[in-house]
Design a protein around this nucleic acid. Structure first.
Length: 484
RNA sequence: GCCUCCAUCGUCUAACGGUUAGGACGUGGCCCUUUCAAGGCCGAAACAGGGGUUCGAUUCCCCUUGGGGGCACCA
């Protein structure tokens, strides 16, 4: 019998999709696609105070931008698609309540009347006495009479799940192997809040079972929840899915990746000008690799080769430098027409769209191999469109002796020169050098400085062709004017 | 404090007892070149430490050290 593969990503909408979540999504997606299975998106919004609709939107947008699709789940803020709808937990409360009733009826869960203060005190004492800080089970064996008396006082209650007190629970993890936990260390967790709503560890189990999830792949931080969840599966008479816990992503200083390390939201990477394909490829390699250490993958390649069993157990450091290198690789692989489209929002933002000047396509093609980020395109090409501002180095180059005569001479030599094209221009300018007994460098460097305001930039003559005669002559004269 | 996981170049990683410990990013040098890139070639750079097991350990076991995660009526 073959089990069909069904994976899921189940974010709680309390913020943006961060890099770690993106990788978890990617791995689930890859695994499902690799096995011809389904990838499900489920929204875990049981935290009523922190969950927001904006977060749901941001998460959906992030996953879409990454270029990943899901077979079941919310398709927008209002609509769900798939046979197990709804896919947002707050719309599934009636379902959880049925399982809750079952557990209570079978004596596997009980009412707990402890207040937050009592629980805090319990934890504090336990810590003090160097015992594991866990709920001591004081409401577990209340008699009916005690219960009635307590409730007569109008005390509110939560509902706790009775964990086994002996034996071990073994988590069989694809990545980590068998991990055992002593049951006496598990605590009776709250599965239903005082506010009459379900908690994460409860919903998660029920949904993964009902949605027939075959593989639960999630972050390392959930590993210690897993034995408790497994016990809930057992209590409900269900078989747990296969688990895979991914190691964390760390910042450059070795601590958990967070805001102080820079961008953590997927959307920020979009806004910085990374390509979705770069993110997919880079994230895939952060904790997973092929035995030949292949670096660049097409999506088909990635789907074909990806395997959860090959994932690294140790945490990985997120390296922006390598990310940028990879983005440069993929930008170079992008056809110019497409690159122009991708650059549009950035050109727009920089105020270059609509200004007189050459076609973006020619300019972008000219500098194509230089871009590492889409966001740096405007700065590298803006001298074609905006008045130039001299960098310090360029200023120095123009201040050299004899530069004024060179610039004016060039303006004269080019003012009627035709055709105003790459090769012809090069021949003409080299001739100009010869006639003036000038070294190429003595002419090329001031020329570049005058035309671009900088000392580095695109290949000179093709750039002049694209810039056009009028602008070239004007800038030569403009640069020469203030010189002695 | 308790539970649990992890440990190869600066970083991501390969190695499934026997290798000159391989690749990639970054880095150093050279080449190409009007500049900056891109590209090509060459180089430096790692098995955390200590015990075992074994003819032989980066690889298996134990301890130490270091790091991560968890210990909520948050997910």
């Amino acid at each position: 019998m073959t089990t069909k593969v069904r994976t899921r990503f189940a974010p709680s909408p309390t913020g943006f999709l961060h890099i770690g979540g993106a990788r978890t999504t990617l791995y689930n997606w890859l695994y499902a696609r690799n096995h011809g299975g389904k990838f499900i998106l489920r929204i875990e919004d049981t935290d009523e105070v922190r969950s927001t609709a904006d977060s749901v939107t941001a998460i959906l947008d992030s996953i879409k931008w990454l270029g990943l699709d899901w077979d079941e789940g919310p398709i927008d803020e209002k609509t769900d698609r798939g046979p197990y709808a709804p896919y947002s937990q707050m719309q599934r409360v009636a379902i959880y309540r049925r399982s809750l009733d079952q557990l209570i009826k079978e004596g596997k869960a009980y009412r707990c009347y402890c207040t937050k203060e009592e629980l805090d005190e319990m934890r504090r004492l336990a810590q003090l006495e160097k015992r594991p800080p866990r709920y001591d089970g004081r409401c577990r064996s209340l008699s009916d009479a005690q219960r009635a008396a307590t409730e007569a006082q109008g005390k509110k209650f939560s509902i706790r799940f009775k964990m086994p007190t002996e034996g071990v629970t073994v988590v069989d993890d694809i990545i980590r192997g068998k991990v055992s936990f002593e049951n006496k260390l598990l605590q009776d967790l709250v599965i239903w809040k005082t506010t009459d709503g379900p908690t994460y560890n409860f919903c998660c189990v029920i949904d993964d079972h009902l949605m027939e999830i075959s593989h639960v792949t999630r972050g390392d931080e959930h590993l210690s929840n897993t034995p408790s969840q497994i016990q809930i599966y057992y209590a409900l008479g269900w078989t747990p899915p296969v688990f895979a816990h991914l190691s964390m992503i760390l910042g450059p200083d070795g601590s958990k990746l967070s805001k102080r390390h820079g961008a953590t939201s997927v959307l920020e990477y979009r806004d910085q000008g990374y390509l979705p394909h770069t993110m997919r490829n880079y994230l895939a390699l952060l904790g997973w690799s092929t035995s030949d250490s292949q670096q660049l993958f097409t999506d088909e390649d990635l789907i074909a080769k990806f395997d959860l069993a090959g994932c690294q157990k140790s945490p990985a450091t997120f390296d922006t430098v390598k990310l940028q290198w990879m983005n440069g690789e993929y930008i170079r692989q992008t056809p110019v027409d497409q690159l122009v489209e991708l650059a549009k929002p950035f050109l727009e933002k920089a105020g270059l769209v609509g200004l007189p000047g050459p076609d973006f396509k020619r300019v972008i093609a000219l500098e194509h191999e230089k871009f590492k980020l889409l966001s740096e395109i405007p700065a590298l090409i803006e001298f074609f469109y905006k008045p130039i501002a001299l960098t310090e180095k360029a200023h120095k180059v123009l201040g050299g002796s004899g530069v004024k005569a060179v610039l004016l001479g060039l303006a004269e030599a080019l003012k009627d020169f035709a055709p105003f094209e790459d090769k012809a221009l090069e021949a003409q300018i080299r001739k100009f050098c010869e006639e003036g007994a000038l070294k190429a460098g003595q002419v090329f460097h001031p020329l570049r400085a005058a035309l671009t305001g900088r000392t580095e930039g695109p290949t000179l003559f093709l750039m002049m062709e694209i810039m056009g005669r009028d602008k070239v002559i004007a800038r030569l004269r403009e640069a020469a004017a203030p010189l002695a």
